[in-house]
Design a protein around this nucleic acid. Sequence first.
DNA 1: CAACCGTGGAC
DNA 2: TGTCCAAGGTT
Length: 298
Amino acid sequence: MTLADEAITWYAANARALPWRQPDTTPWGVLVSEVMLQQTPVVRVEPAWRSWMTRWPTPAALADDPPSEAIRMWGRLGYPRRAMRLHACAVAIVERHGGHVPSSLEHLLALPGVGTYTGRAVATFAYGQRHPVVDTNVRRVVCRAVEGKPDAGQATTAADLTAMEALLPPDSAAAARASIAFMELGAIVCTARAPRCAVCPFHDVCAWRLTGQPLPDGPSRKPQRYAGTDRQVRGLLLEVLRHATGPVPRQRLDVVWQDEVQRARALAGLVEDGLVERLGVEDFVLAGDTPKGGVQDL
DNA sequence: CAACCGTGGAC
DNA sequence: TGTCCAAGGTT
């Protein structure tokens, strides 16, 4: 049995029943799930995904609403630029592809917010194509099982793809199963902190385990700070704007953060990123929440 | 290309 | 009221 075969067998018996894995999930549903899952845990994505798909079952449905609605529906999933890009994605899919999520990797990668991982994930999981799909879970599993290292270092996309490619079965359907199986393995067994090696299908062949599970050497990569950063301030500002029904006077934004310089910088950043629009001099709204200056038509 | 971009939960 | 981590992407 190859590693891929072992993983596929394990997956068949142990996979979580996540809604976007149901056979009737559309490519749009897969794309939405992949974007939501970028740096956000499954448990928080699941309810959000259901709400999103109920409201916007197709790219065209989302494209018909303003970005502000997408930002609101995004809620507190984090990195709200993803909501904006998903909206831009929907618009692009309508304009370029007649409302159908493209199946070619090239077209997928050209969509906003779709990078190396997400593009391959959609091509593979929605369309059954044969691509290596490498996320943080796959990198960790391959690193440990094959290379015997405790953790994957900095992502080296090309090398990671090559390493996973070497493990994929020739058949495209089997390759897709192998990729999702490796991901699931990394998510619930070969975890970052407390791997459950006792129940791992790679238990007897894992290079890392067979060499005594050496600890990471050298200095660990310093985690990024959050408290006190512009990111925190942006989050606070956006939280106010999300709940607003009309234009928000600057005065209501001023109360969320003491430091005036940082507050202004954060707000300017949100405007520059297209998440927020300034109305007149002192009012702000989520992008697309612009009240009609005059009724265009009825 | 290292740094930036949110948020919450487990220790 | 700290650290680390979670299906990354963009610049």
